[in-house]
Write a protein that binds this DNA or RNA. Structure first.
Lengths: 110, 110
DNA sequence: TTACTATATGATTATATACTCACATAGTAT
DNA sequence: ATACTATGTGAGTATATAATCATATAGTAA
């Protein structure tokens, strides 16, 4: 793979990682794992302003993480690919590794 | 799980996702998958300023993605957990999904 | 000691992101 | 038509991030 193409790929990948790299957005993704939801229900669930939630949703759509459809007045968002949930598994491995280290350190100190 | 604890978890997870959400940092992680490297070799490989690379590395260490050790003058960085590489698999799934859609759209247009 | 190398970091600037408020739009209901 | 609701977006502000340059530190070698 040529260098310029590789760089473009890293940029695309970074965009996706960035799109999920925010606590509210992760909470939204976690909420949507059980099925599609409209903006106002998402906003209520995570306890944030609708306009703010709307922006976060737009960002995730443009990053290719979510997709949406209209239903009357409401706009319904859903995960574009359930594979995005693998992120949680992957992140958990990193956090577990960290937690193990902390507990090991704690044992040495006590 | 109580709400405050859940929020804290999302923040920790977001920090990790953010730590890999940058093209240069992804390139560094990709470079380190084959083994540990010192700062200057990393900087040369990705073609960026050492001071800049040093900051990116520090950021990833504090997010728990990398760890480092000293060896003489050099500081050697490595992946703290190879599981971070699963991110690439996960991201690829999202990108593939997107690519499939684009090609389907293209077929309709031509 | 001095000279050199690798790395980290303070200070600065530029840019990006997050959030809020106010308003516009679109659909629904009366 | 008016009134209402859900959503999106412009404008502004605050904060975070990225990059660069200059400098400091730490180890090496002469």
């Amino acid at each position: 793979m040529p260098d310029s193409r590789k760089r473009l790929l890293f940029e695309k990948q970074a965009r996706i990682a960035q799109a999920i790299g925010h606590p509210l957005r992760l909470e939204i993704i976690d909420f949507l794992k059980n099925g599609e939801q409209c903006v106002c229900d998402i906003a209520e669930h995570i306890g944030a302003e609708r306009s703010n939630v709307s922006r976060h949703l737009g960002l995730m759509v443009s990053a290719g993480v979510l997709e949406h459809r209209k239903e009357g007045l409401k706009v319904i968002y859903r995960l574009k690919c359930p594979c995005i949930l693998d992120f949680f598994t992957c992140i958990s491995s990193v956090l577990k590794k960290e937690a193990k280290e902390s507990s090991r350190l704690l044992k040495v100190l006590c």
